[in-house]
């Protein structure tokens, strides 16, 4: 039987079909409430020998790699991320679209931290939060978010439920260093503080240009190419 377009139909004879609601009605009449309960516990023997080390120790770790395609505007310090490829080893993917959605959402959140989001308290104004609303705490909109391509890598883990590892937080982390490395590749500056905001990136570019002018460092490849 297949459930398609709000109808339950016989796969052998697709002309035999009823509305889904009716199919569930019949099923509940025959079998009672349709439901299933399940749970998964992490293996007991996996934990660190330290205080708190026994809490939810994971039997396996996920692995992620990100590639960010970006450009840096050397006059404004604005970093524009065009596209991100995220490859994530989640073990066995139980629902591919949902795993992809977790990966894409993680890229979004990490990208947002890298480019614009920031919790700042202002010590000169009684520690007020400078971004207390969705206007002043800037989250990327549909127009700011890069294209994201999620690539699932399946390496099932025997200890995980149905072979799964995880696909929640793991795919977030590498996007920040990927963007930082992209900025370095583009303009030769290392930014080690979040976010990589335009004033911060521009200040680093200008500081590097001053170093180049003083003969302390070599021009970055981009600068060299432009000069040539």
């Amino acid at each position: 039987m297949a459930l398609i377009q709000r109808e339950a139909l016989d796969r052998e004879d697709p002309q035999r079909r009823v509305p889904i609601a009716e199919a569930f009605w019949w099923a509940e009449e025959d079998h009672g409430l349709l439901g299933e309960v399940g749970s998964y516990n992490t293996p007991k023997d996996r934990h660190g020998e330290y205080r708190g080390g026994t809490i939810g120790a994971s039997p396996a770790y996920s692995f992620t790699a990100h590639i960010a395609d970006l450009s840096v505007d050397v006059e404004t310090g604005v970093t524009t991320v065009h596209k991100v490829w995220v490859a994530h080893d989640c073990g066995q993917a139980l629902s591919r679209r949902i795993v992809e959605g977790q990966m894409e959402g993680s890229v979004y959140m990490g990208f947002a931290e890298a480019i614009m989001e920031e919790h700042v308290v202002d010590p000169e104004h009684n520690g007020e939060h400078t971004g207390p609303s969705l206007l002043d705490y800037r989250m990327p909109t549909f127009l700011d978010t890069p294209d994201i391509e999620a690539l699932i890598v399946e390496a099932p883990d025997a200890q995980g439920p149905y072979g799964a590892k995880e696909a929640g937080e793991g795919p977030l982390h590498p996007i920040i260093p990927a963007i930082a490395n992209g900025i370095y590749d583009a303009v030769g500056v290392r930014i080690d503080r979040l976010p990589f905001s335009p004033p911060r990136v521009l200040a680093a570019i200008q500081a590097r240009e001053a170093e180049v002018a003083a003969g302390h460092v070599q021009p970055h490849k981009t600068n060299a190419r432009r000069a040539g």
Partner: peptide
């Protein structure tokens, strides 16, 4: 066109990709 039309709607979870 989808990005332009939905530019006033924020989403925190999806990264917008699946919505588009």
């Amino acid at each position: 066109e989808v990005r332009e039309a939905l530019a006033g709607n924020l989403c925190r979870c999806t990264g917008y990709t699946k919505i588009i």
